[in-house]
Design a protein around this nucleic acid. Structure first.
Lengths: 375, 375
DNA sequence: AGAAATATCATGGAGAGCATCATTATTCGG
DNA sequence: CCGAATAATGATGCTCTCCATGATATTTCT
């Protein structure tokens, strides 16, 4: 059956309808009452009633009427996406990225801070603080204006926002990221693995927008994966889903080494392969073979609609995607669509925004609670 | 957000509350109105109203009052699980199993028909017909009394109830099982892979009752898997989830051969191993190693709460489970609980019943539609 | 027999949604 | 420039659902 059938009060019905109205209004477009009524299934009269309530609570605003057309011009209403803000942070080896977005997920302002993979814990956390501060300042906000924060990092993350294990960054295991970010931004902080967030982002506004099941491959210095199952991010019982790299026979551990062996810098290998360098081509082929082996395990397990390749190496999609597709074909019963990430560098931070928005929508966007602050 | 927020009419509210009432009443126990009110969150008056409507529609019946206790004795109500029937069928290599169950999933009557793996399509289908007929007759029903049927079979199944591919049974690829069963039982027929159904059953009333994420291993002549993710059966885009056996390095193809090589009959090997026969012990060890390799890929991908081992070999759990757990420990980041199937032979057919019940609950058990036939 | 406890029944009220019809604002055609 | 056509808004009254409250009924305990 359809999950949690709690039923309840009459007010519950209004809540459902308010949510439905907000949902059709979200996404920037403004609608007339008649349009709202039609797409929610409500009667016009009820739609009007609901919209009036949302208007009064600050969730909805009147938008300028569009001219043209016969008859009395209709008022238009839009979701007040500027009613609240969320923060998204991506903590990587080479850079920290922080953005502020509105309730539609539109990025308002962002900041980059360069870091190095060798940096210790305190230095990196200080860089996070700088990125967040710069980003808030640029958007003209203080920490108190933010309704929720999403944070992406490499490594395993526990449910409370602590890093359980990270080999890639020194002194990173054990950091309590949620607590750290909450010192600047006193709102709920949600921490998640970067690969998982990138998957979320691609599903939300990337190439996988219409896919319900998705395997996202993070192909870069580190190889990882994020899974979307039935439209939802799959975390696993201990947040350790997608860690197929732990199985040596599937090659993810050695995959990256082929590239390093071919030349000092991995980025160069793809360029060299693109120009026909024999050794480079062979190295890329070996890399793709190993990448595909692990990916096949994921695909065979889940039978997803789509595989999206992201991470640092996805910039070299032209020499990656097609060979990957061929390799997957060798092993998979049904090879899914293989696409390159549409979001590139921004995927993780956008996933963090999505995570924060999910939290906001669960907590306050039931349309009932009045707004705390009208910015 | 919480999925499909459609909102709607006032009648929708009543529908939700009726569903909630049915849900708390399901499961055999009879409740007083006060109890219903408390566990649904409705007021007593409303609970009474809802129950009266359900009573009149035939979904609920009055149960005998329980004596004792001070005060006016309360009327008790129970879900009329006998209001409808579903059919479950398990089509295997050695046997056909058909059962009729009530709306609580309680099995009313069942039938076995022995078959052989070598049987052709027509002969096997005839056996299915016999099993279904015998089972219906034993329960005193005709095909028209059944509200939905679930059918389990080996092989890949498409959405329409056709077998897309089956290596295990001769002439089985291409059979339209849904159409065949519907000739006898003119109700919706849902066909699914046997491993997936066994997983469903274990999650419903087996050892995984409280697990939201589950990997079910079908260990037998064929090696397969079924996945429960977030409490729901995961099918995959083309119903091909869990087919990790397609990846040769993960060993599921050769796994079973170790047992055959050790002796002609696989069943004997476990017995021999139990008594300390050196060759048999080694064969079982090799089998478990290969089984665990593929299982590790599933576990690392999903990070489930539990792994349940079923299928023919699960009878030899004493020599299987512990070694399997050790092997999983070698590869997995977090080894989940490993348990033996609680349902054994009955798992697939019970999963088929569950599948049929899900369909019934989606279609008619909204508490609004009056019963078609009061048996 | 009376008190206490608990359940059922009846009444009235509030919230939510809907259908209907009058009113209003605009464009189009002459 | 004016009336017809068009489409949105606003107001009224109805129904459905739930809830609170109090009256009535049935049982056990003392």
């Amino acid at each position: 059956m359809a999950g949690d059938v709690t039923g309840g009060d009459l007010s519950r019905l209004r809540q459902l309808n308010a949510q439905a109205v907000i949902k059709v209004l979200q996404g920037g477009s403004s609608l007339t009452l008649t349009e709202v009524a039609k797409s929610t299934g409500l009667s016009r009269a009820s739609a009007e009633d609901v919209v009036r309530e949302l208007l009064q609570k600050g969730w909805v605003a009147e938008a300028g009427a569009t001219a043209g057309g016969v008859g009395r011009p209709a008022r238009r209403y839009r979701f007040r996406s500027e009613a609240g803000r969320v923060l998204g942070v991506d903590i990587g080896g080479h850079k920290i990225r922080a953005v502020v977005a509105d309730l539609d997920g539109e990025v308002q302002h962002g900041a980059w801070v360069a870091v190095t993979p060798e940096m210790g814990r305190l230095e990196r956390l200080a860089a996070v603080d700088r990125a967040v501060a710069e980003c808030l300042e640029g958007a003209g906000l203080t920490g108190g204006d933010v309704w929720a924060s999403g944070v992406g990092t490499t490594g395993l993350v526990d449910g409370a926002g602590r890093v359980l294990l990270s080999e890639a960054l020194p002194e990173w295991t054990g950091v309590d990221l949620a607590a750290h970010v909450r010192r600047m931004v006193p709102a709920p902080v949600l921490v998640e693995n970067d690969g998982k967030l990138a998957a979320l982002a691609e599903c939300w506004r990337g190439v996988a927008r219409y896919a319900k099941d998705l395997v996202f491959l993070l192909a870069g210095l580190r190889t990882g994966a994020g899974l979307i199952i039935d439209g939802k991010l799959h975390r696993g019982f201990a947040n350790a889903s997608g860690e197929i790299g732990a199985l040596p026979v599937l090659g993810w551990i050695r995959a990256q080494e082929h590239l390093v062996a071919a030349s000092g810098e991995a980025g160069d290998v793809f360029a060299a392969a693109r120009e026909g360098d024999k050794a480079a081509v062979a190295a890329v082929r070996r890399y793709v073979k190993d990448l595909a082996l692990g990916a096949s395990a994921l695909v065979l397990t889940l039978d997803p609609q789509m595989v999206v390749v992201g991470g640092g190496y996805s910039r070299s999609a032209d020499v990656l995607i097609e060979p990957l597709r061929r390799e997957l074909d060798r092993w998979c019963i049904r090879t899914p669509e293989v696409r390159m990430s549409a979001l590139g560098d921004e995927a993780v931070v956008l996933g963090a925004v999505r995570l924060a928005l999910d939290d906001v929508e669960d907590r306050v966007l039931d349309g009932r609670s009045p707004l705390v602050s009208h910015l």
